[in-house]
Design a protein around this nucleic acid. Sequence first.
DNA 1: CGTCTATTTGAATGTACTCAAAAGCGGTGG
DNA 2: CCACCGCTTTTGAGTACATTCAAATAGACG
Lengths: 196, 196
Amino acid sequence: MCQDELIIRNIRQSISLTDSEAELVLSLLETRRYSNKDFLLRQGDICRYDYFITGGCAKVCYSDDKGNECIIKFAPENWWVVDLDSFINSKPCFYYLQAIEDVEALLLSKQSYDRLHEKIPQFQKFSNQRWQQGFIALQQRIIQNLSLSADERYSQFEHKYPGLEQRISQKLIASYLGITPEFLSMLRRKRAAKFS
Amino acid sequence: MCQDELIIRNIRQSISLTDSEAELVLSLLETRRYSNKDFLLRQGDICRYDYFITGGCAKVCYSDDKGNECIIKFAPENWWVVDLDSFINSKPCFYYLQAIEDVEALLLSKQSYDRLHEKIPQFQKFSNQRWQQGFIALQQRIIQNLSLSADERYSQFEHKYPGLEQRISQKLIASYLGITPEFLSMLRRKRAAKFS
DNA sequence: CGTCTATTTGAATGTACTCAAAAGCGGTGG
DNA sequence: CCACCGCTTTTGAGTACATTCAAATAGACG
């Protein structure tokens, strides 16, 4: 499937778009390619785009007090990602966004984002749903972090990002789960032992 | 301050309201009082109201697989609370909402909520800000849960809900922090020791 | 006053981390 | 093609953080 189809299909999962509206959406998007390890967005920059990933995978991170990288979430194909606070309020962004594979993305500028909201009545609904669904998903994740063990969180990760555990390094997964790579290694060994 | 003033002041922190718009808001609200331990909303019900707490404090919880109560957040005076997924999508709610003190609240029905969005152009902005800010706050909380120790999370709690630690039981705080009451007891003992 | 629940305390246990070292693996240059 | 480099993964020992369970104490409420 080509990337244009992918994004329109993604939007149409939430709202209905006429063909001319779909055209408008596509006309406002910009395609960008990033090599593995390129930054889509650096910490402290203003986030000027809303990103829709059409190929490869990026990580959304921040640096904590001690300088460690913490991964908030992954953005594989068919995912939207943005530093909302920075995008909406033109603040320096707290997160950074870096490719962990070669990445292909469609970028929607703030201006175009606003334009879509003006021109397509349904788009407000799309945004609302997106933030609301995002909010709900984050609540779920908080619950999981509070009540599940590392092993159970790993299962959740596998479920949320099917197949991703085979594409990306264990170090990255460990950071996402909030555990050390060493400990994840041990968890995997224990899992493997269960199938023997 | 009376409860009407409280909610209007709360809204005016995000958007400007004319006096007649403020009147409209107030006319759509319903006041309710709950005694300690009363349910504002039960797990599985449809959440038909958006709640604004004007006095006392409620807890937002869910029951996990093993039947334990997990507290997602507290709702003391001047806080909005709703099960978003249930309210928006008319689904059975996942959370329940229970008074942990005598509570006074202003309730906004879904119908009135929609009405405000129609009648007050700025209200869409208020809602958007609310979900966006909520989203941002949740992301922060995820980060904190991943990277902070229980002791540090307790400090965050004190900062987020000033004075609340003196009003509510330690058992509830422990549940919010995702630790056992016994362990919280020990943390507090250690803290007290530092000031000797 | 008695009952019920919350809090404190302690011992034993489990979960996850740190640090260090060894092994595996992929890419690069000779 | 191989040797080497850097990075990831594995393994292990020792430690810190947090839990469970049990029992004692303290508070709240009728």
